[in-house]
Each structure stands twice: as C-alpha cells, then as structure tokens.
C-alpha cells in the first residue's frame, strides 16, 4: 500500500474552487515532485495534507490512517513533517533550539517533572538535545548550533528548516520550494541532501519546486498540476514528453 494516498480531494474558498478531485499516491522510499504553474494549487494541497486547510471533500490516508481534517500537530505526530515556502523559523531562538522543536511530539515530559527535575526528565532533555545536534550535523550546520537562527545566511536557514522537520522523525517530509532563493552551488548541495534524506534515513520526500532542472534531476516521480487539477503523473521522462504538460508550461500553438 502507498505511504500517502490522496483520493478525490476538493478544496474551495467561498465560490472559488482551488482543488478539483485530486487523486494521487506517494510510494514509500520514492522522491516525488509536485510541479505546476503559479497558482495551480500546489501549496494549497500541502496545506490540506498538513492540516492547515480543511478539505471540502475526499480523503487523505497516511500509512493507511485517515488524516484529512486533523489539526496540524496531530498530523505531524502521525509522521508527516513540512517546511514552509517562506522560511518560518523561530528567529529569536538559537539554531539548536529550533532543531530541538521537532522532537516535541516525540517526547512527553511536562511541567511537573521539569520542576521536580526527575531523572527521566533529565534523560529525555539530553536525548532531545542530542537529536537536535544530530540533525544539525546531518544538514551540515552544527557549527552554528548556539547562534541566533535569524542570524544565519539564507541557505543555512533553509537547511535549518529541513533539520527541524527531520527532527520530528517523519515518515514523509513535504518540502515547499526548498530551492527558492538558492544559488547554483546551494542547489547542487540541496539535490545531494534530498538524496541523502531518502538513502540514509529512509524518509520519503515530496517536494514542490519551480526549478525544472532540479526537479528532473532529483525526482523519481512527478505529479503535474494546472488550475487545481492533476494533469499528469509518472516518471520524469514520461511527464516531460506529455503534451498536456508542455501545453501548461509553454502554451499551445494557435
């Protein structure tokens, strides 16, 4: 069974239909991309998957469990993490504290055990800190652990957002335009990092991206959107040759 199964998903704001009966699936261990022109509904779909929008109809299953309509924090706890199109870090906190935030839903000690300084609570704090450091190391910014997150370079902020999402130990990670604003060098590093996420951690990746070069290079499966509808999906070479995709991107010859 597919890791993520989306069936007939519908979303509208008032009279405006944003998503029309979207169906697609994401297989475990595959790097997937979601592409389409601006306004095609890609980020809206991400917001439905992660619980920020409530879909009007259809179903979403993650690992066989229905998640449509659940609040965001429950969906993250069930194993679906995300990054944001416009970076949303806790800028005033340290890089390490940002990375540690992902571990919140994987730990349980509350106020009372913190006040009592219970040994189990101290151990859990150590484990959270170690996990934070591990993921900072994974994305390559561990040397900045104690700096203010807002003071990082743009590229490193993107990496930190990735580390924070990975720290929540997801099954599936959604990346919303991870290459936006990166230079060519940083894009290459990103491709490398996305492959390492899949190869070394087994976490499945679904990304939204406008950079076609990057998408074709890294994806094993592509879903194409236009005007809130899915117009194609499949491996890169098939999608690239699909006349409807070419039409959506280049327009038709009159």
């Amino acid at each position: 069974m597919a890791l993520l199964e989306v069936r007939d998903l519908r979303l509208s704001f008032g009279g405006l239909k944003v998503l029309h009966d979207i169906s697609f699936s994401v297989e475990k261990g595959v790097i997937n991309s979601l592409i389409g022109p601006n306004g095609a509904g890609k980020t809206s779909l991400f917001n439905c998957l992660t619980g920020f929008y409530k879909p009007k109809g259809g179903s979403i299953h993650l690992g066989g469990r229905p998640i449509a309509g659940l609040p965001p924090h429950r969906i993250t706890a069930l194993g679906l993490a995300r990054t944001f199109q416009n970076i949303r870090l806790f800028k005033e906190m340290t890089v390490l504290e940002n990375a540690m935030s992902g571990q919140h839903c994987r730990s349980r000690h509350g106020i009372v055990s913190a006040i009592l300084h219970l040994p189990a609570q101290r151990r859990e704090e150590e484990a959270i800190r170690a996990a934070g450091m591990h993921w900072l190391d994974f994305v390559g910014i561990e040397q900045h652990a104690h700096r203010r997150a807002g003071g990082l370079s743009y590229g490193d902020q993107r990496r930190l957002e990735l580390a924070r999402a990975l720290a929540s130990a997801p099954e599936l990670i959604l990346l919303d335009e991870p290459a936006a604003g990166l230079n060519e060098r940083e894009k290459l590093d990103l491709v490398h990092l996305i492959r390492r996420i899949r190869d070394e951690t087994g976490i499945t990746v679904l990304l939204i991206e406008h950079d076609m070069g990057l998408v074709m290079q890294v994806s094993e499966k592509i879903v194409v959107f236009d005007y809130g509808q899915k117009i194609a999906d499949g491996p890169p070479e098939i999608v690239r040759a699909d006349p409807r995709v070419i039409e959506a991107y280049l327009g038709t010859e009159e």
Partner: peptide, 25 residues
Amino acid sequence: RSRMGRAWFYVRYDEDAAAGIGINR
C-alpha cells in the same frame, strides 16, 4: 529550560510554525 518551556517560546514566536512542527498550541 524544559520541553514545555521551549514549546511556549515556539508558540510565542511563530504559532503556525509551532503547530506545523507538532505542538498543540
């Protein structure tokens, strides 16, 4: 300096990002 204290700061600085990372705001 504990998990819950940090969660409060996460919510204070960015409620939506906190929810997205798994915190029940």
